[in-house]
Structures are given as structure tokens and as C-alpha cells.
Design a protein around this nucleic acid. Structure first.
Lengths: 314, 314
DNA sequence: GGCGATTCTGCTCAGATGAGCAGCCGGGCC
DNA sequence: GGCCCGGCTGCTCATCTGAGCAGAATCGCC
């Protein structure tokens, strides 16, 4: 395509997309046949001169979703558009909304849904509508009820999802990470705790997010880990955590001793789940999102456009 | 349109624009008739959910051009797209290119073209192609040959435009602004100078830019004015200059005494021209662009998208 | 300069789309 | 409850558009 044709295709595109002329009219204006105009427009599209964006908080990027499914082996992917996004909070909100939409449309409806907790999960619970399902029971899959700065958030998340879904919530009454291995083992052998974990293992579907390995982590905020603990994990290769378990970029546990003191489903248990929905958004979580997807921690990913493109990069 | 329809129209738009499905196929996917799908898409467009951009340095914004013609009474307007622009320099380059394109396509071809000088005009001269016209003579319409930091730029501009257009350049051998009124009058009464100005008055068309009233002005750079002179002009309401003459937001001369010492066509002479092409781009020139258009200094405006939208705002 | 290969052009035709219209449905008002 | 009105729905039909194709033009190579 030479310079002249390139310019002509731009002129044609202006008349076609901005002035809503027919290809025939454009042909008359530019002294071309309508077939030539059609071909110029096709080339303009094909060479990327035409960008079409859907500007809406609920807009998704289907081509990227398809690539995630095909190139990363996900059984499903939901990618929210970043077009016209105001800030990281809105990105997070859009992603949470998309996750809520996905859950609502999910078929078959899971009888029992295992959930983690955290900012993302809480936001999803807020976005779910009353009656999003009927009879969905919710069970927590990792510990962490009490130590939160805003106590009850973890519980409110699970209870909210359950209530709006017409079911019961089963909380895991345990800290996320215990200081001593013995305490952790003692807690896990408690009849109630063991029962909850058993129920969690039997869930039809899991819904969880991932945390970045930095000082903004919920574990730091909640007091389970200190900033220096996290620094140490990062030094060992940690990119973030899933259900409280810190993993490296290959999806392996970074600190087995710490992991042994962490209450809840293990990463391998999650990996075996037929339906594991990860919801991960934001620049800071790109590395951990990569680890989650590469190591097969989820079958379904809900994320934002930038994160998705990052995943497809490598 | 209720929430459900809004969401549906977004889903439809995704399938239509991103997945290239037909409206019929979308209808099947969303369990709608194809007519409903068509209506949803129409609404999505109409409500602004669909943004179509033409990403190309030569892309123009025809709807904005139309509004400038209709709402600001211009006989023609060229608005270059800001989509995907890298920085102010590229915006300037795109606008200069568009001005060169406009000149090249101009019919009837002017026999004599009056031009000002400055960064913008120089860039336009660079963008013009050899043989852009045949037999177009060029005449400078304001003084300023010698004092430039890069001497000869003003001359090179006029000569370049003329040579590439197969004609002669007539330079105005005079400073832009003189220190004493008597000197200015003496210069103007010089036979050569008077002849050039007479020729300038008789030009078929004028091509000029405008300068912002700040320390980056060419007059400061060239030493005709000091920074404090410009500050004083700003204090008196100056928004910028056209052919060396400083005007306020209503297009009136800010400092009549200074104006009397400025050599070249007057603003009122420009206003009476049947074809006066102003080329003005960049954030810094929004106020002066406004003054130029509002006070009828040009019949044709070549500008960038942001400046055009600023003009249409008020 | 001649010749084959490739690209380009303008066509036919079928599928996709938008305008316009009659019938239907639902809400508001008596 | 009955009636009117506005908006919505699904249709027909005309127009617009893209795929595919045969001939024309152009290019590159000898």
C-alpha cells in the first residue's frame, strides 16, 4: 500500500466513521469506485488505523478473553475493559462487578462455594445482588476471621455472599497463620475446624483472589505478618499469596515452614478443583496473577485488561 | 432505556465490534431478535458507549470541522486528530502538515500568497512538496527578517514556499517592531518597503499563525521585546500576537503605541481579506486562537483537536 | 522489448443492515 | 373495569456491504 492509498484510506475512514457516509457516497467524493472504498476501509482496519472502544464500566474485552482461554489453558476468562478508567479503585470495582456477574450467571449453580476473604472478595460480595442464586451455601477456605483491622470483614464477606444467594455461610474459626506449628495442628484437629475444612474440600467451586507480596498485603494489615516478614518472603522469591499461602513465580510454596502454619486449603487442593475462580486486578498483582495462571491454580480468571495483557506477554 | 437494556447493548457491542459477529448471530447468542440487536447497537452508539477513533498522523476530525464552520462562521476549518499523539511537537507537526495539505489542495490557486513567519510557518514550508503549486508568488506580510536567533528562518520560509510552488518570494526588508515611531514611518516610506507592503495588501490569500503572549514568544527570542515587555502586555490583557501585533481576547490591539511601531499589514487589513488562513496549534495558544476566531481575523482555521474543542466550548 | 506472474479493478451476487410500519402490550386515567 | 396513548416488537423492503471472480494493468525478469 503506497502513501497515496494510505492517505485515501484515512480520508475514507473519516467520511465513513465520522460522517456516516455510505461507501458509495465516499466513492463519489473521492472519485473512487465503491469497491475501492470498501477495500481501503478494510485495509485501514487491518493496519490498525481504526480503533473501536466500548466505553462502559461493564465492558469486557472478548478477544483477550479468548486468547487467555486458548493460550493459557483457562476454561474461562473474564477481562474487563480499562477504557476510560479513572483510577485503580475503579479498575478494582469493575473487576469485582464482573466477578459478581460471572457468579450470577454461573451454571450449574454450585451447591457449595468455597471462598477466601480480603478486599477483593469483600467487594464482590457487595456487588452481588440479593437473590443472585438460590440455595448457595458458602464455606471459608482459609483462616483469618478475627485479627482484621476492621473485624468481621471476612465473616461479612462469606455471610453476605451466602445470604444474598439464599444459603448458609460456614466460617472457618481460625487465624490465618499461627505462630507455632503445634498450635496450628491443634486447631486443625478441633472437631469444628476439621469439619469446616472437610466441607471446604467438598465444595463444588472456589472463589478467591490473590495478594501482592508487599507491605500493603492484608496479612500485614491484619497483623499476621510484619513488613520484614514479607520482605524476607520477597527475598526468597515470593510474588504474592493465594489463600494466605505465599508462592513464587512458578507457583511453588516459598516458605514451607510458614505454609505449614497456615490454616485452610492447600494450593494443591485448589489446583485439583474442577472450578476455581480467581479474581485478580491491578498493576501490583501482575506477578502473582502470572504465577496463579501459570501454575494452574485457577480454571477461571476474572481480571482487568492490563493484567490480562501482561499474562499474555510472556 | 433501563439497566438491563444498557447491559445488553454493551454485550451486543462486544460481540459486534470485537468479535465481528453479525447482528443475527448476536441475536441467537443473547436470545434476541436481530432487530432488537440492531436497536441496542444504535442506542449504544447514540449514548456514546462506542468510541471510534482514527489513529493516524494525518487523521482529521470532520465533525469538529463542521461545528467550527457552523458555529464560528469560518468558511473552512481543518482539525487534526489528537488521537495517539506523542507530545506537543507532534501536534505541531501534524497541524503544519495539514496546513501544507490544505494549501496544496486549495482552489483556485492564489496568484499571490501573503505569509507571516515563525516556527509554525517555517514548519509548513518544510512540509510542502516540490511542485505543490505552479506559479504561486509569496510576499511577507510583516517585518522581521534579520533579528532572528537563527537568521534567515523568516526568509527561508517565504522563499521555500515560493520555490516549491514555482514562484518568486518577495521579502519585507524591515524589522518586526521598531523602537521609535519615526523610524518605523521612515522605513515604511522607503520605496522598496512601501512597494512590498502594497504587494502584500493585494495578495489573494494570507497564511499566518499566532503567537502566545508569554516568554516563549518569537519576539522575545528574536530580541524585539523583553520578557518584561511581554509581561506588561499580558497585564494589559494581551493573549498573543498575530503578524507581530498583540491583541486582547476581543481581538483589539492592546498597546496602540507599540502597534504603531510594528511594520506590516494591520489586523483590520487581514480581517478584510477574502481568504485568511490561520494555523494555530497547542495548548499555549488556546486563548489567542479564541481571539483570532472570535474577532474574525481568519476565514480558514487549521488547528488541533484540543484547540478546536476549546474554541467551541464558550 | 517480450513474457509470465502478480496485483489490481470492477463486476455479480448473496448476505447484512437500517428505515419505516402495523400490531401489540402496558401504564395511566377516568 | 374500560379506554386511550406511547412505546416496544417483529415484520417487509430497499439499501448497503463484503466475498468471490474474471479480465486488465503492472511489475519483474530475462
Amino acid at each position: 500500500m503506497d502513501e497515496t492509498d494510505e492517505l485515501l484510506s484515512i480520508r475514507a475512514a473519516e467520511l465513513y466513521y465520522e460522517e456516516n457516509k455510505t461507501q458509495d457516497e465516499i466513492g463519489q467524493a473521492l472519485r473512487l469506485t465503491r469497491w475501492k472504498v470498501g477495500r481501503l476501509l478494510a485495509q485501514a482496519k487491518q493496519r490498525g488505523f481504526i480503533r473501536i472502544e466500548i466505553l462502559h464500566p461493564r465492558a469486557r474485552r472478548l478477544p483477550i478473553e479468548r486468547r487467555l482461554r486458548e493460550e493459557r489453558g483457562l476454561s474461562d476468562a473474564i477481562v474487563v475493559s480499562s477504557a476510560g478508567v479513572a483510577g485503580p479503585e475503579e479498575l478494582q470495582a469493575r473487576t469485582a462487578q464482573a466477578a459478581a456477574d460471572y457468579l450470577t450467571a454461573l451454571r450449574p449453580v454450585p451447591r457449595t462455594l468455597g471462598v477466601s476473604w480480603g478486599r477483593t472478595l469483600y467487594e464482590i460480595s457487595q456487588h452481588l445482588r440479593n437473590g443472585w442464586a438460590t440455595g448457595v451455601n458458602v464455606v471459608q477456605i482459609n483462616g483469618g476471621v478475627s485479627l482484621n483491622r476492621r473485624p468481621g470483614t471476612a465473616a461479612a464477606t462469606a455471610v453476605g455472599i451466602a445470604q444474598k444467594g439464599g444459603g448458609q455461610a460456614t466460617l472457618l474459626p481460625s487465624p490465618a497463620i499461627l505462630e507455632r506449628l503445634e498450635t496450628k495442628q491443634a486447631i486443625e484437629s478441633d472437631r469444628v475446624v476439621a469439619g469446616v475444612i472437610e466441607l471446604a474440600r467438598s465444595a463444588d467451586a472456589y472463589l478467591f483472589s490473590a495478594g501482592a507480596a508487599d507491605e500493603s498485603s492484608v496479612h500485614v494489615e491484619s497483623g499476621y505478618l510484619s513488613v520484614s516478614d514479607v520482605d524476607l518472603l520477597v527475598a526468597k522469591g515470593a510474588v504474592g499469596d493465594v489463600v494466605g499461602r505465599y508462592l513464587d513465580s512458578d507457583g511453588n510454596i516459598v516458605d514451607p515452614a510458614l505454609d505449614a502454619r497456615t490454616v485452610g486449603l492447600t494450593l494443591d487442593e485448589l489446583r485439583q478443583a474442577p472450578l476455581a475462580i480467581a479474581v485478580i486486578a491491578g498493576q501490583a498483582k501482575h506477578p502473582v496473577a502470572d504465577a496463579v495462571v501459570r501454575s494452574g491454580l485457577c480454571t477461571v480468571l476474572v481480571t482487568d485488561e492490563a493484567t490480562a495483557l501482561h499474562l499474555l506477554d510472556g
